[in-house]
Design a protein around this nucleic acid. Structure first.
Length: 213
DNA sequence: CAGTGGCC
DNA sequence: TCGC
């Protein structure tokens, strides 16, 4: 037993150097975040993107902010226009920005101003295989990941795909932040389990904030 | 069944 | 090759 555990603010779990889990941080802004999310996906519908290999991702995705992450047969990239509409992605809601910046500060990353928010919708069975977030120009900025709706098992590994994985259940309102020496850690989400419900419906939503450019 | 390697 |  160590005193370090008690040196952290309540609800903050250090999971690796530069990485932490802020349990329930989004709950205080739940209503505003949920409303803003509905508005964004009404303007830029969730869609199943293709991988460069031509397969369809099980997670439905959209974006808000100046840049959006897209995948198709040409590869992964950030772009200013929604390929479905050829219009800019919806603006980043102020409530999204405030939550992302609060989480980054609590995690020890000052001056985080995301220019991209990837929205992932997981139905039962949807998953995201182990991967690294490495499409961003400047990897000195952290990743801020907000969980809403149904719970899911998060895998958090090392800098090599074969490294041992931490597995933890992410609940509605939890926020994970990773940056610095953990910025390129592999991570993923196991297939969403059935049998659970929330007032947000039978989905898990994930908001992933990045500084892409 | 979780983890690993390899796919072209 | 963020899937199988």
């Amino acid at each position: 037993m160590t005193l370090d555990l008690f040196a952290q603010p309540a609800g903050k779990e250090i999971i690796a150097p530069g990485a932490c889990l802020l349990r329930g941080l989004a709950l205080a802004r739940e209503s505003a975040i949920w409303q803003a999310l509905q508005s964004v996906i009404a303007q830029a519908p969730l869609r199943h993107m293709q991988t460069p290999g031509g397969l369809t991702m099980s997670v439905a995705m959209s974006n808000c902010g100046p840049l959006g992450w897209v995948s198709d047969r040409q590869g992964y990239r950030y772009q200013a226009l929604d390929p479905l509409s050829q219009q800019p992605w919806p603006a980043m809601p102020a409530e999204f920005m405030a939550l992302a910046q609060q989480a980054a500060i609590l995690a020890g990353f000052a001056d985080f101003t995301p220019d991209a928010c990837l929205i992932n919708q997981y139905a039962v069975g949807a998953k995201l295989s182990l991967h690294q977030d490495k499409d961003e120009r400047d990897q000195s900025h952290p990743i801020v990941s907000v969980s809403l709706g149904l719970p899911a098992t998060f895998q958090f590994g090392g800098l090599q795909r074969s490294d041992k994985l931490l597995r933890t259940e992410l609940q509605h309102g939890d926020v994970v932040v990773w940056g610095g020496p953990s910025r390129l850690r592999y991570h993923g989400i196991l297939p969403l389990k059935s049998g659970t419900f929330s007032y947000m419906g039978t989905y898990r939503y994930n908001l992933t904030f990045r500084r892409a450019s």
